[in-house]
Design a protein around this nucleic acid. Structure first.
Length: 200
DNA sequence: GGCACGATTGCT
DNA sequence: GCAATCGTGCCT
């Protein structure tokens, strides 16, 4: 199955993010069909780790595209990101949920949970997704993905940047995370019945 | 050196 | 609703 080439990741982050939906994140004998991602774009994005500029932690974001950026959050969960755009341009895509194939123990609906289930941790930070042997992204089919967007999860501290619709999900997938903290899904299934009378 | 906080999750 | 748990960035 064809791995994605460097050129795929070298494009603008907001183009790469939705294009990752429907592709497969492969780690050892396991893989996950990507159904939910978020884009974190440049230093001005107050939700992006690069908002603090170059540090030991953010150095990966400034590196060349097609590498893994894995960080520890809340002292106990790892989050897997794909570095995008040219070297020197800090932008990455967080993988938030996958459909496990084959089925896995433990959920994969959430950035911390999918890393735990697939065995991804900080040792994978800096791994080459194009030529590396530990983790990569590949295409397994050309099936179309119906894409929906929402604001990103858990970044309310970022002010108006938190309102940008930079979370991309496969609108038809039941494997998307529950995303506590989201007020209202953008257009689809679980809205309150349209004609609920709300008598008064 | 100390401290507040986080791209989350599971349990009360 | 809230605690767990520790690396990071900034300050005290």
């Amino acid at each position: 199955m064809p791995r994605l080439p460097r050129s795929f990741f070298a494009r603008p982050c907001l183009q790469v993010a939705p294009d990752l939906l429907g592709l497969y994140l492969v780690r050892g004998d396991f893989a996950g069909r990507i159904v939910e991602v978020e884009a974190y774009v440049h230093e001005e994005d107050q939700a992006c780790h690069a908002r603090v500029g170059r540090t030991r932690r953010t150095e990966m974001l400034y590196g060349p595209p097609g590498y893994a950026y894995v960080f520890l959050i809340y002292g106990m969960y790892d989050c897997f990101n794909v570095v995008t755009e040219a070297e020197g341009s800090p932008a990455a895509v967080l993988v938030r949920a996958v459909e496990p194939v084959p089925p896995l123990e433990g959920g994969t609906d959430g950035p911390g949970k999918l890393c735990r289930a697939l065995g991804i941790n900080r040792a994978h930070n800096g791994q080459d997704l194009v030529d590396g042997a530990l983790v990569w992204i590949e295409r397994r089919n050309r099936k179309k993905v119906k894409i929906a967007t929402t604001p990103r999860i858990g970044v309310d501290y970022a002010g108006e940047w938190a309102l940008r619709p930079w979370r991309f999900i496969d609108a038809d997938s039941p494997w998307v995370s529950k995303a506590r903290g989201v007020k209202a899904p953008t257009g689809s299934a679980s809205r309150p019945s349209r004609r609920s009378p709300r008598t008064r």
